[in-house]
Design a protein around this nucleic acid. Structure first.
Length: 156
DNA sequence: GCCAACGTTGGC
DNA sequence: GCCAACGTTGGC
């Protein structure tokens, strides 16, 4: 049985990996996530063809810049095993991987950036707990409801 | 570049 | 199991 389509938001620093990079390569393993909550969402929650809002963080105008889709089920993030990688985790083994990822595929760029500043004006509709606007939240992968998805894209 | 907020680590 | 120290995130 095919699970109902879910929606997610995934943050990336454009200096490291931008929506243009994703457009160029088409599909990319979402490596480097080293937060358990974000990992759990990828490993336990994501299904192929789920929708992804691509968000640029730590940049001049942070915001949602494109749409992607989940392109694989979760599998171990290879960078955790590589001593030369910035994402190397000495406690992870092939037998007992600690970090998982999914492949993410490009769908389209938004016509314009939906800036965080603008998104904040809709806190009431998005809900107090929405991780993008919740105070102090740094979660880089989290679920978005169908209603939140629709609202955010209506701002495009 | 600053720094508040948060998550993780490790000594005890 | 507590919690101080440290490292990271990410808006500004």
């Amino acid at each position: 049985m095919t699970p109902r389509k879910r929606y997610w938001l995934m943050k990336s620093e454009p200096d490291a990996f931008s929506i243009d990079d994703l457009q160029r390569v088409g599909t990319e393993p979402w490596n480097g996530v080293r937060n358990y909550q974000a990992r759990n969402f990828m490993r336990d929650g994501m299904h192929v063809d789920d929708g992804v809002l691509f968000y640029h963080s730590n940049t001049k105008v942070p915001g949602v810049v494109g749409i992607a889709r989940v392109a694989s089920t979760a599998y171990p993030d290879d960078t955790q095993f590589d001593p030369k990688s910035h994402y190397h985790d000495p406690k992870a083994t092939r037998e007992q991987p600690r970090w998982f990822l999914v492949d993410v595929a490009f769908e389209r760029k938004l016509k314009r950036t939906i800036a965080l500043e603008e998104i904040k004006r809709h806190t009431d509709e998005l809900g107090e707990g929405f991780p993008l606007t919740a105070r102090g939240s740094r979660l880089s992968v989290f679920p978005v409801t169908a209603a939140q998805w629709k609202l955010l894209l209506s701002l495009e």
